[in-house]
Amino acid sequence: MEDKPENAPESCPGTQSQEAGNTSACQGCPNQSICASGAPKAPDPAIGEIESRLSSVRHKVLILSGKGGVGKSTFTTQLAYALASNEERQVAVLDIDICGPSQPKMLGVENEQVHQSGSGWSPVYIQDNLSVMSIGFLLGSPDDAVIWRGPKKNGLIKQFLRDVDWGELDYLLVDTPPGTSDEHLSIVQYLGAAAGIDGAVVITTPQEVSLLDVRKEINFCRKVGVPVLGVVENMSGFICPKCKTESKIFPPTTGGADKMAEEMGLSVLGHLPLDPRIGKCCDMGLSFIKEVSDSPAALQYISIMKKILLACGDTDEKQ
Rank of each mutant, 00 (worst) to 15 (best):
G69Q: 03
A42G: 06
V109P: 04
Q116K: 12
K41F: 01
Y125D: 06
L83M: 11
D44I: 00
S52L: 09
A20M: 11
F137S: 00
G136V: 09
E49K: 15
E110H: 12
A92I: 05
D97R: 04
Q78P: 02
N129S: 07
T74M: 09
Q78W: 08
Q32M: 07
E110A: 13
K41S: 05
L107K: 09
I34Y: 06
I98R: 05
S131K: 13
Q27A: 12
E112C: 08
A80N: 10
V91Y: 10
A92P: 14
G108P: 08
H59S: 06
F137Q: 08
I96L: 11
L139N: 01
S65Y: 00
S119C: 04
L107R: 13
E112L: 01
L64N: 01
N86H: 06
E19V: 00
P9Y: 14
I98F: 10
I98S: 07
D95R: 04
P9E: 04
T23A: 02
Y81V: 05
A36Y: 09
G100Q: 13
S119E: 10
S122D: 03
A46I: 02
A20H: 12
G38I: 08
E112Q: 11
C35Q: 04
Y125P: 05
A42V: 11
C29G: 02
T74F: 09
I98W: 06
